[in-house]
Simulated scan of single mutants.
Amino acid sequence: MDRNGLADFLRRRRARLAPADVGLAEGARRRTPGLRREEVARLTGMSADYYTRLEQSRGSRPSRQMLSALARALRLSDDERDHLFHLVGEEPPRAPHGPVGHVRPGLLLVLDRLYDAPAQVMSDWGEVLAQNAMADALAGEWWPGRNIIRQWFTDPPVRELFPPEDREQHARMHAAQLRAVLASRPDDPGPAGLVAELLAGSAEFADLWERHEVAVRRASVKRFVHPVVGLLELDCEVLIGADRGQLLIVHSARPGTESYERLRLLRVVGLQSMTS
């Protein structure tokens, strides 16, 4: 592991980004250009102390998952992401059976411009690849690197984000989406492994799988229960990337509705969380 090279690369890539480039508020005047260390740490889900040690050539070897999170947070190109992995002595991620999990900078740019709408980039089998600050404020449990289908069937508290009467439909949708993806890419180890894991660990999933329902994720209306702003009824748009394996999910509220006002309040709540 090239600690000095890694530290220099991280510092330089952090310095070239403005808060607006990653969907953050500018805040107080900055003495130096670029993001603050704690902002990069929050975008990656690591502690500020650990990230600081990486930039000071003192950090322990980052995991592959953490390297992918850094690549997303720093908006690295494919070549820059590969260089990041090489600095740590790791082979860059490859995806022979499906789309690469690294989100293209252009798609991240679109995500960051959606400052007033919760939005995520996801794989078609539920992997959260990136999400903006509004998505953090709405559903903070689903950090990049996690799989929403796995969490749904193995971590019941995440269901509290949705009204009880909507949860059965969400469960059916998750199983049907995974069925469609597995049929289209039966040799892809990602979705195949997730199906095997859930069949072994979730009786509910196994029952839904037996129904053989098939559906792909499309535009819909979803209801969310937020602990601060209350019930939100949001239009969910699904935009498919060029490789068809990455989805940009955008949630919006219709102007003039109560949900529209609550979504505006959610942005204030989210900004307060980012600066607290």
Rank of each mutant, 00 (worst) to 15 (best):
A95K: 03
Y50M: 14
E258M: 10
P163K: 01
G190I: 00
R167H: 10
G106T: 09
V225F: 02
Q65F: 09
M46G: 12
L271Y: 07
W209P: 04
R223K: 09
L234R: 00
V221I: 13
F205Q: 01
R254H: 15
R75Y: 05
V268R: 12
V238C: 11
A203G: 15
Y260V: 06
V238T: 12
Q272C: 15
G256K: 03
E26M: 10
L24T: 03
F85P: 00
F224C: 02
R58V: 13
A206R: 13
W142H: 09
N132A: 03
A25G: 15
E91M: 11
D207Y: 08
D187G: 03
E210C: 11
Q120A: 15
L107F: 08
P62H: 00
L129E: 01
W143R: 15
T32Q: 14
G201K: 14
V216T: 14
E233V: 12
P19T: 13
L6V: 04
D21K: 04
L263F: 03
L182W: 10
Y115T: 14
R167C: 08
V228M: 09
E90L: 05
D49P: 10
V214R: 05
L138M: 09
V121Y: 00
A171T: 04
E168D: 15
R146W: 13
D155C: 15
S57Y: 10
A242Y: 14
M1I: 13
H86T: 12
N147K: 07
P33F: 06
H86K: 13
S57I: 09
G245R: 00
M173Y: 09
V216Y: 05
P92S: 00
R61Q: 10
G270E: 01
V268C: 11
V229M: 08
L182Y: 11
L24G: 01
L67S: 02
R217I: 04
L43Q: 01
S252D: 06
R211T: 06
L70M: 05
M134C: 07
A200Y: 06
V110Y: 07
P93Y: 03
Q65R: 13
R42V: 10
D187R: 07
A183M: 10
L199F: 10
D155T: 15
V110E: 07
C236A: 12
P96T: 02
S57W: 10
A139T: 14
T32P: 07
L70D: 00
L111A: 00
R42Y: 13
R12S: 11
A18W: 13
R64M: 04
R13M: 09
R113H: 11
R264M: 14
L234Y: 02
A183V: 08
R75E: 06
